[in-house]
């Protein structure tokens, strides 16, 4: 291998898989833009968490990643966007589907087939994959999401949490480089939500899939990420290390639900109890720090 090509390879490793520059979008008929001047950079293999109050533009941003905005929604998109090396402005959503899988909030409305495996195969059928190959990919996706045993059931026979795993399997079967999940657990109970997060985390760690997760429940999700984006009123307000961002007063004032562990850590710190280690993001982390600090010497 020549030196040059090796250098280029090293370069691709840290290359942004998603990059937007001054992205501004207005829905048709809307008076003001839903996202304003959004410039973000996501690297390959990252687990990115996006949060912010309702109506802050998170969902709209997700729709940009696979070209639903502007191809499906029309309207006016300004700025630059590149996803998996593709300019989404020039490529239709069905071309993006093999790069980006989008999972939506309501599991019920993304399953349309009468059996689970048929649903998982839907995207592959659409792009015309051969039956043998399809079978392999469908089984692979069903196994990774832990629903292989449910493959012959119909969507109404399974719980909401299982339905959402089917939706994840359905985009996973296309073997995308990126999976974008828009509040995938907001209709689920905390236990089912945790299972979903574990599935997503494993996909990120073991399969190397870049994950973009939009969530309100930072209590359960902050621990998975080291790249947090906080949006408010269409703008990116903070981007970076969640431990720093979640411990600022400004973040709290935007209305972001700070994890209880992080809050308690700060309250203790204010009252003079200094704990060793990072700012905690989960109850496990804080509990370990407290055990250390309160342990009889």
């Amino acid at each position: 291998m020549s030196k040059l090509s090796r250098l280029r390879l090293a370069g691709t490793k840290n290359m942004a898989i998603i990059e937007t520059k001054n992205l501004t979008y207005t829905y048709p008929g809307a008076t003001k833009p839903s996202i304003i001047d959004v410039s973000i950079k996501v690297e390959k293999g990252e687990f990115v968490l996006i949060t912010g109050p309702s109506g802050c533009g998170k969902t709209t941003l997700c729709r940009c990643f696979n070209g639903l905005v502007p191809h499906f929604y029309q309207g006016e998109l300004k700025g630059e966007i590149s996803v998996a090396g593709v300019n989404t402005l020039e490529h239709h959503t069905y071309e993006m589907a093999k790069h980006v899988g989008l999972v939506f909030q309501n599991p019920e409305n993304q399953l349309f087939a009468l059996s689970i495996e048929k649903d998982v195969a839907f995207g592959l059928e659409n792009v015309g994959v051969s039956r043998e190959e399809m079978r392999k990919k469908v089984d692979w996706a069903l196994n990774l999401t832990g629903i292989y045993d449910l493959r012959e059931r119909s969507p109404h026979e399974i719980s909401g949490g299982q339905q959402q795993r089917v939706a994840i399997a359905a985009v996973l079967a296309m073997e995308p480089e990126i999976i974008v999940l828009d509040e995938p657990t907001s209709f689920l109970d905390p236990l089912s939500a945790e299972k979903i997060f574990e599935v997503i985390y494993a996909l990120n760690k073991k399969q190397g899939i870049t994950v973009i997760l939009v969530e309100h429940r930072l209590d359960l999700t902050a621990k998975y990420t080291n790249h947090l984006i906080v949006m408010d009123e269409g703008k990116v307000r903070f981007e970076g290390n969640p431990r720093e961002i979640l411990s600022t007063e400004e973040t709290r004032l935007i209305g972001v639900g700070i994890p209880k562990a992080t809050l308690l850590y700060q309250m203790l710190k204010k009252d003079g109890l200094n704990l060793n280690g990072n700012i905690p993001l989960s109850s496990e982390e804080l509990a370990d720090q407290l055990l250390e600090a309160l342990k009889p010497k």
Partner: peptide
Amino acid sequence: SSIVLPQIAQIFAKLSTL
């Protein structure tokens, strides 16, 4: 009942050894 402990309760479940 398939419900998870609240965050604060999770912390104190661990701290009960103290």
